[in-house]
Design a protein around this nucleic acid. Structure first.
Length: 534
RNA sequence: CGCGGGGUGGAGCAGCCUGGUAGCUCGCAAGGCUCAUAACCUUGAGGUCCUGGGUUCAAAUCCCAGCCCCGCAACCA
């Protein structure tokens, strides 16, 4: 379970000073159950991470948990537990969830860990010393029930507040604020000059629209301990804890710091350091997030980083939300998809395939059980599974499983698909990549129909031709395993095993025609995606 | 004047930025094949590309106006 951290030092020794491909998911609020949205974001990120590794890059993939805040505190108290004990138990569930999804994360951050808290305090001290914060007293309407300040927007048309807020009182509270508003124009200029910073483009436009039409307010970064004590104390004022921004977002750099990233460690010092500042992790290459937290990542976070003197992440990749059966996913109405239940029934790869194939990164999507079954049956069972099964079965039956001489009739098609897939993967076009890979499956199935190996097998004079056809088919299956590995790692491994190959098809470099050697004996064919007749 | 997303053959979608025979998956119909998970291959039927204007030699695609759906705040990715 806790093998994440152990991988990192090993990789470090290989390339200690070169920039690694650093990709993150948002960290999830621990006080909730993992659901489809969480699974989706993690799977997307995992596929990108696996893709980069397959292409030979040194990758660091981070995911984790946000564990501070009022809700956790309250929930823990309600159960009569210490908040840390409460979080520790939940964190095990989330780690199990990551394992269920077979994520290849290199670390798993928890914001209650000392390594994170220490870094947060260090960076807060540094920024405080730099004069980035100031204190101000805010007076406003406060809901004692919800423990939150209300704004004019929360007023009902008749001027009152919704009864759900309970008693609303005027309250004065002094807090620390981060100087955000001064950087508005800088951020606009930056986003305009860097079109790939926020993707897809329509999300970028949304951010620019927001920035151009609204005046930024400075960011309140603290809460009095009297109101919230489950948080990281401000190092310069123990009467406060830091609020979510300087806690959760900072995970993206606190973990690099914990791994010795020089550029991040330097940022906690006010004086210039002679440390080697050659980057190893930071800046992140991609932050994968949901559309709901776009503002935090595309507005607050860049300005925070600017204040810290750190470079900005290269890209914020924003995905959409899932609906189920055309309606909002809602626990209260029972309109939910339980990813664990789906995985248990259909297998992890079927789940990964559906969410990646059904929905492009960006738009909202719609989960339907019928659609899931349809894709499982049509694309996985009848498409991929059947092609591999029929190809290997014929080699087994007609040639006793021995790979014949090289032949390259399908090589041009395969090579084209390999090149296209590679280009699409480089752009994180996961859905289009899958469509492209499937075009090779379709091509191979057509090839069977056109060449009729089962007929050739009945005519001894066609033996050479049969060898040629069989080689093309089996070699195509081998290449498919390599192309599919980032998406369907288990299936790719099973194809490889059925081909009698050792090792994992996890290197894109192996996607070159002619990899299967004549004389090699394949393993036993077996259905990859058993048909489900229910 | 809330904001955002969308209206394309029976269903679900792509195309629209960078105008030029309307494409994909599923479903349906007919045919072929039998190696394979009753899977595979071919062909076909089926579309006022929401409406009305405009620009253009040419608009699903650009511009204007309108109509209609769907989300919107803490269960939230």
């Amino acid at each position: 379970m806790n093998d994440f951290a152990n991988r990192t030092p090993v990789r470090h020794t290989h390339a200690p000073m070169s920039k690694r491909f650093y990709i993150t998911t948002a960290i999830d609020y621990v006080n909730g159950q993992p659901h489809l949205g969480h699974a989706y974001e993690k799977v997307i990120t995992d596929v990108i991470a696996r893709t980069r590794r397959s292409l030979g890059e040194d990758v660091f993939f981070l995911t984790g948990l946000d564990e501070h805040g009022q809700k956790v505190q309250q929930a823990a108290v309600a159960e009569g537990k210490n908040p840390q004990v409460y979080c520790d138990a939940l964190a095990e569930d989330w780690k199990a969830f990551a394992k269920k999804l077979e994520l290849t994360n290199d670390d798993f951050v928890r914001t209650t860990e000392p390594r994170h808290k220490q870094f947060v305090q260090a960076i807060l001290s540094r920024l405080h010393a730099d004069g980035q914060f100031y204190q101000e007293t805010y007076e406003g309407f406060y809901s004692t029930k919800e423990e939150t300040f209300l704004t004019e927007k929360d007023r009902l048309p008749d001027g009152t507040f919704d009864p759900a807020y309970g008693e609303v009182v005027r309250l004065k509270e002094t807090n620390y604020w981060f100087k955000l508003k001064a950087h508005q124009q800088w951020l606009i200029d930056y986003i305009e000059a860097n079109p790939s910073f926020v993707q897809p483009d329509y999300r970028r436009n949304e951010v620019l629209g927001f920035l151009k039409n609204n005046e930024l307010e400075d960011l309140c970064i603290s809460r009095p301990v009297a109101r919230l004590n489950w948080g990281i104390p401000l190092p310069f004022d123990n009467d406060y804890v830091t609020y979510v921004w300087f806690d959760a977002l900072v995970n993206y750099i606190s973990i690099p710091a914990a791994h010795g990233d020089a550029i991040v460690l330097n940022s906690t010092n006010t004086q210039h350091s002679t440390l080697n500042t050659q980057p190893s992790l930071w800046p992140a290459d991609i932050h994968v997030i949901g559309k709901d937290i776009l503002k935090f990542h595309a507005v607050f976070w860049p300005i925070m980083l600017k204040a810290m003197g750190l470079p900005l992440p290269k890209q914020i990749l924003v995905h959409g939300w899932w609906q189920k059966d055309g309606a909002k996913i809602s626990k209260s109405t029972g309109n939910i998809v339980d990813p664990v239940a789906v995985i248990d029934e259909w297998g992890l790869d079927a789940f990964r395939f559906y969410v990646l194939r059904e929905l492009d990164i960006g738009p909202d999507g719609n989960w339907t059980d019928a659609g899931f079954k349809s894709r499982y049956q049509a694309e996985l069972a009848n498409g991929l599974g059947n092609l591999v099964n029929r190809s290997l079965s014929m080699l087994k039956r007609y040639r006793n499983g021995v790979v014949p001489s090289l032949h390259d009739e399908l090589a041009p098609d395969a090579t084209k698909v390999i090149a296209d897939t590679r280009a699409l993967l480089g752009q994180c076009e996961l859905q289009k990549a899958l469509q492209t890979i499937w075009s090779l499956i379709t091509r191979a199935n057509q090839y069977v129909d056109q060449t009729k190996p089962f007929s050739l097998a009945k005519d001894p004079s066609q033996s050479v031709r049969l060898d040629q056809v069989l080689y093309n088919l089996v070699e195509t299956c081998r290449i498919l395993a390599v192309l599919l590995w980032p998406f369907l790692p288990g299936t790719a491994a099973r194809i490889n095993a059925q081909l009698g190959l050792s090792g994992s098809p996890d290197k894109f470099a192996a996607a070159v025609w002619g990899g299967l050697k004549p004389g090699h004996t394949i393993g036993e064919p077996a259905a990859l995606f058993p048909r489900k007749d229910t």
